[in-house]
Structures are given as C-alpha cells and as structure tokens.
Write a protein that binds this DNA or RNA. Structure first.
Lengths: 250, 250
DNA sequence: CGGCGGCATTGATGCAGATCAATGCTGCGC
DNA sequence: GCGCAGCATTGATCTGCATCAATGCCGCCG
C-alpha cells in the first residue's frame, strides 16, 4: 500500500485546508518538529500559507510512503515515528540508506522521481505536500530553498560518512557508530538519553550496515557480554560510551 | 600543498578580473564545460558577472584542493582532469566518496567546512570562487540556487547508489558497475567511447569500491582473461558490455 | 492457556576477499 | 642504458563475516 499516488485518503474530495484529522496539533505554527525541520526558516505568515497546502497523515507500521523510481507526487515532513529509506537490487538484496526521524524531510532533492523507497518502521506521522504545490510554494522563497539546500548538504555529508562506514569499517565499528549516531540524532530532537530506541528490526539494522542479521545479533550480544551495552526491548542502553566511541568514533 | 587557503597564487595581488592565466578559454562564456555544469543556468550577463569573481587555476597531479573539515574558503568548478574526494579514518583507512570530472562542482553543499578532502588525480583545471563572493553571487539568483540544489540532489542519489554498491555487492559487481558508470559519465561530458580512461591508481579504485588493491587487480585480470575487458595503459576497453551489465546493472 | 508465526539468538561450517609475500613492469633520473 | 622507485600483478594463506541450521523467545489469536 502506498499513500503517495494516488491519494488514497478519506479527505481526497475535501478542500486541502480541511485535511487536518490526524494532525497532532492545530497547524504548522505549533508543530512540534517545526524548529528542527526545514520549516524553521519560515515566517508566521508563510507558515499559514504552508498550512493550506499541507496535509497531516498518520500511517501504521509497514506502510509504504513511496517507491523507488516512481513519479514523485508528494514530499513529506516526518513529524513522528521512524521511516526506513532503501534501495533494492533486482535479486532482493537491500541497502537501507537512512532512517528518517521526526523533523526529517523526504523528497529533499525535489526531483521528479523518488530515488529510494520509504516505509514506515513503526506508526508514523507525516506532513504531506503535493510536490507541484510545494514547488510553487518554494518558488519565490529563496530563504526556504536555501534551507532545503542546507538540509540536502547535510544529508549528502551523512551519506558520505555512511560510505566510509560501509566500505572500510568492521562489524563492531559499524554497530558502535550506528548506536552512537542514533543516540545523537535522538538527542538533537529533544530526546536525550543513554537508552537508544531501536524500533527497526535486526534485518533493518543489518541492511543499513551492510551486514547480516546474525552478525548484528552476535555483535550486540558480545557488546552486552562485555557490559558495553544493555539490550532492552526495542532498544539498547549505552553503558560504556567511552568504549563505544573507541570503536565508533568518526 | 593546498591551493584553497590562503591564496597561494601568483596573481594574488592583482584584481580578480585579471586572473585569467591558466584558463583554457577567454571566460565563462566559452568555457567548454559550461553546458554540463551548474553555470548552464546562467544568462550571458550573469556569466560576465561570474567571470569577475572566478579565477582559473591549473594544478599538477596530487595537489590538494582542500581538506576535510577545513574552513571552506573556496568552491570550485572542475573544468579539466579528475579529482578524488575522500574521507579518512584516524588510522589511515580511506574511503573515496567520488571522482569529480569536468563539469562537476566542488563545495556544492555551500557549507562552512569541507566534508571531504579533494585531491587532483592528474593535472586538473578548476574555476575557483571565493566562497563568500560566490554566496553573494548566488544570493538573488534563485534559478542558480535551484540548479545547485538539483546538482546536490543528483549527488545525493549517486551517494545512495554507492551505498548499495558498498554494502551489498560483490567484488566483481563493484568493478563492473564502476567501469560502466565511468563510461556513462565520460559519455555525458562528450567523450563517447568503449575505452574508459582510468587516470587514478588501483589503490584509488580499491578505496572507492571498498576493496583492496589485490582484489581490484585480480578481478580486472579475470575479466580480461574472460575477454570482457581489455586492460590498456591508464584505462580499460569494454569488450563485452552485455556481460558487464549483467554484473554491474543497477 | 496452548500453539503458531515471526523474529532473534546461538552454533557449525564455508568462502570471498583480506593479508602477507614475492615478482614483474614501467618510466624517470643519472 | 642502467638502476631505482613506485605501482601492479600474481600466488599462498588466513580470517571475518556469510551461510546454513537449530533452537529460543514472545506476542497474538483461537
């Protein structure tokens, strides 16, 4: 199931500004991820205008938001939950290129086709924009374009870090870097804790790090045995940050 | 040696518009990579203005254009030659995240620090811009910013392809994809041929593909033995494109 | 509450590619 | 034209992670 094209949505016939069911708040103005997201570049009046073309959606786990190489009909702002972004080979091998957290923007490149597939890992809330409407909105707002560009530059930088990780680091280093990275990202969006939520499966982690599920499991078990981490349901508690940084530091 | 900061250049004291020695042509207007580069988005009058803040430079092989995490004083347009872009780990392991060819822009993200190190593989010609001047130039030219953003989106997409390659493909698949990819890129900039120039060393190729020099060598030798490619000095001739695509197709 | 399905862990074995080690090739300075 | 330095090739061996194969765990549904 895809929510991107066509608009399989109960409010498809209503005017866009009515599409607020599912939104956690009353609009962009008090959106809880606004200050972390591309929208932080916008003035109150611009936010109002954005409200008019935005549509809040809540989707259950495993929902496909869009698929690799499909026409990019929508772009999204993630407001809650985790989204996996991946590329696949014809034979089924998969590489997850990133996990999108609240505040992340999907479709940053503004290209006419999606470069990756996006699936909800757990229950996810997004702010959806029809791409053409969003493009029109961006047009004439160079500060927003600048902000989108900044985000794209940041994504590119993350992608390059991930290349270094995939090409040159050992399994333990990959796991350590992943855990530290997720912790940092959660901290940035206001969730500072030594317990890192990992709503995704071991298979997802393996496909993100270029490993197998068995190697992920074994490596985590070993780190747990060495009291570097504590494995908890749907997450990991980081016990020995120094030791992790020794392996995972960039 | 770095040419980025400070300006180690014989014309450092001259006005910028005089800095044309080393430029292959008379200016942006008849720059041979203009139509492939970000500059294709510019009007003649804008090109003239760009001329005034640009500085053509020719640098020998192995020159460092800029270094990872240094302050980004300049941005560059590559007009000739090949540039390797890489990230390093403290212990010396290296991952090349890309090879920049003529028409490619370095510093696309416009961030205040470089995310990678850039080194000339062979003799390289670049068009250099002081970053602050370039930012000022971009400011008020949303169509150029749009173009830069498009380029960044394309780079991001390439980076994600490379992640899939690094994380999930075998040595032979990596080599095949690399060769086909380089051929396509050379074709796009006007050099259509089954002989792919490879000015970079085996070590560079290995560090790009997440392999060792020995594996690169062995894999190429095997492909040559099977008459899929013919190894020539500083390049490879692709003999059996179908067979290569079987391994390397995305 | 019991059985089933999906995921994770753990163990045994295999192998692609790394590592270690010569040897060969080529271009350049003298 | 000789010798050297740097790169590439080739061969022998090793190993980290994949693969194959149970087994365990837990939530869910009847």
């Amino acid at each position: 199931m895809s929510i991107a094209e066509p608009l399989q949505d109960s409010c498809a016939g209503a005017t866009r500004s009515d599409c607020r069911h599912g939104r956690a708040t009353n609009g962009c103005e008090d959106c809880k991820v606004r200050l972390f997201s591309v929208c932080a570049a916008l003035e109150p009046s611009e936010l109002e205008e954005l409200d008019r073309i935005s549509q809040a959606k809540q989707v259950p786990a495993r929902t496909t938001l869009f698929e690799q190489s499909a026409l990019a009909g929508s772009v999204f702002n993630v407001t809650d939950g985790v989204v996996r972004l991946y590329k696949s080979l014809p034979d089924g091998r998969r590489q997850i290129v990133g996990f999108a957290l609240p505040g992340d923007f999907l479709g940053l490149a503004l290209q006419d086709r999606y470069g990756v597939t996006a699936e909800a890992v757990n229950e996810v809330a997004v702010c959806r924009f029809v791409r053409s409407a969003f493009l029109a909105y961006v047009d004439g707002k160079p500060h927003l374009l600048r902000r989108l560009h900044e985000f794209a530059g940041h994504e590119l930088s993350l992608a390059q870090d991930q290349m270094l990780l995939l090409g040159r680091r050992s399994a333990e280093e990959k796991i350590a870097a992943f855990l530290l990275n997720m912790q940092t990202r959660y901290a940035r969006i206001g969730s500072v804790s030594v317990t890192v939520p990992l709503p995704m499966s071991r298979q997802d982690i393996a496909d993100y790090l270029g490993l197998t599920i068995e190697t992920v499991s074994r490596t985590l078990t070993r780190l747990a045995r060495e009291k570097v981490v504590l494995i908890v349901p749907d997450g990991v508690r980081l016990l020995d940050l120094e030791r992790l940084k020794l392996s995972g530091a960039s």
